[in-house]
């Protein structure tokens, strides 16, 4: 467990108790401008917290360390943070946005209720990764909730701020990410570290531009794995055995490698797989897959639909129907024109 989550619950409860004052005395002299929040009964100030939206609660948490230590009692541990490194934005529960803006002026904060977003202006000190990391740390200290989704989208190679931020997240929380999305130009060693060390439960989506080559040596344990590269991509399909959906575009896979993969699938080595799409510049017309040539697998004939989940369904036309050794039915499809692609659709029944 990372530092942010290591504080024992008793400390939090003690800090709450110190606020909870049952005294009805009138030490507080009421004025129109003030209200002694923490002299209310516990249930009441908890209600006040609960009617604040997460951004207002975050601003409140910044008023003092003691307040920061107790806002999590609203149940914020269950909240989810989405970090957009490129746009320097953190979204709470997919709805409440917090933008970090570099400025040459004194740092300031502004909450735009209409836009529903909170803007934090930071002084530009030439180390822009720090601000996002600092705000993230403040958020996690207050809410004690994990980052579940990480996005990086940038084509400038010199802008590699995503890496220290991702590293910070991984080193400070035990919960795996739900989704890791990296798009742009990244350094091979950073990408390699991310794929080796970041645990992801649902989606890994990597789209690389301008990288000459990348050889992946990792074993993702996630539902959906999507990898697109304009350069040379070498991946061992056998490393993707636990995935449900696989999309590889512009890979270096040959028909021989595909044939090997299909034999493994037929033998039951990919029990979770529902769908795979592979685009490659190295498919030829000579070799066969499980004895079928490309014309056998072309998109002609009956249309069917594979429903993966409520957000994703795949239309399938034609192809060749096959059976795995365990009786699982599937359809192989292959293009007969450019671009070259191969699809395997595994049917539920």
């Amino acid at each position: 467990m990372g530092l942010l989550y290591s504080k024992p619950l008793e400390i939090a409860i003690n800090s709450l108790s110190s606020f909870f004052n049952l005294d009805w005395s009138t030490e507080w002299s009421p004025t129109p401008q003030t209200f002694p929040l923490f002299r209310l009964p516990l249930l009441a100030w908890l209600e006040v917290f609960r009617t604040l939206d997460p951004i207002e609660l975050f601003i409140l948490s910044q008023s003092s360390k003691r307040v920061a230590n107790c806002v999590h009692i609203v149940g914020s541990k269950k909240w989810k943070l989405t970090v957009y490194v490129g746009s320097k934005c953190i979204i709470i529960n997919g709805k409440y946005k917090l933008f970090i803006i570099e400025t040459t002026q004194k740092p300031s904060r502004r909450y735009d209720k209409e836009v529903g977003a909170f803007f934090i202006k930071y002084e530009d000190i030439g180390n822009s990764k720090r601000e996002l990391q600092d705000v993230l740390a403040q958020l996690q200290t207050a809410f004690r909730c994990p980052v579940t989704t990480f996005y990086y989208n940038n084509v400038k190679k010199k802008n590699q701020r995503w890496f220290p931020v991702l590293k910070y997240i991984i080193q400070n929380q035990i919960q795996p990410l739900e989704s890791l999305n990296i798009e742009g130009t990244v350094k091979n060693k950073h990408l390699d570290w991310a794929l080796q060390n970041v645990r992801v439960t649902r989606i890994i989506s990597i789209r690389l531009f301008g990288m000459l080559k990348f050889t992946g040596n990792f074993q993702p344990i996630c539902e959906r794995f999507s990898f697109f590269s304009t350069g040379t991509l070498r991946l061992d399909l056998m490393m993707l055995k636990s995935c449900k959906l696989i999309e590889l575009k512009i890979s270096r896979l040959t028909m021989g490698a595909l044939n090997f993969f299909m034999k493994e699938w037929k033998a039951g080595s990919f029990p979770n797989l529902r769908y795979i799409l592979i685009q490659s510049g190295r498919f030829n017309w000579r070799d066969h897959i499980l004895g079928f040539d490309r014309y056998d697998m072309e998109e002609l004939g009956v249309s069917r639909r594979l429903v993966i989940d409520k957000n994703l369904s795949i239309e399938s036309t034609g192809g060749v129907d096959i059976h795995a050794d365990n009786g699982r039915k599937a359809t192989m499809q292959m293009s007969t024109g450019s671009p070259d692609w191969f699809r395997l659709i595994v049917w539920e029944d």
Partner: peptide, 12 residues
């Protein structure tokens, strides 16, 4: 702002 909230809610 956090400073204003300290004043409004009498937070130390």
């Amino acid at each position: 702002t956090p400073a204003q909230l300290r004043r409004v809610y009498l937070l130390p």
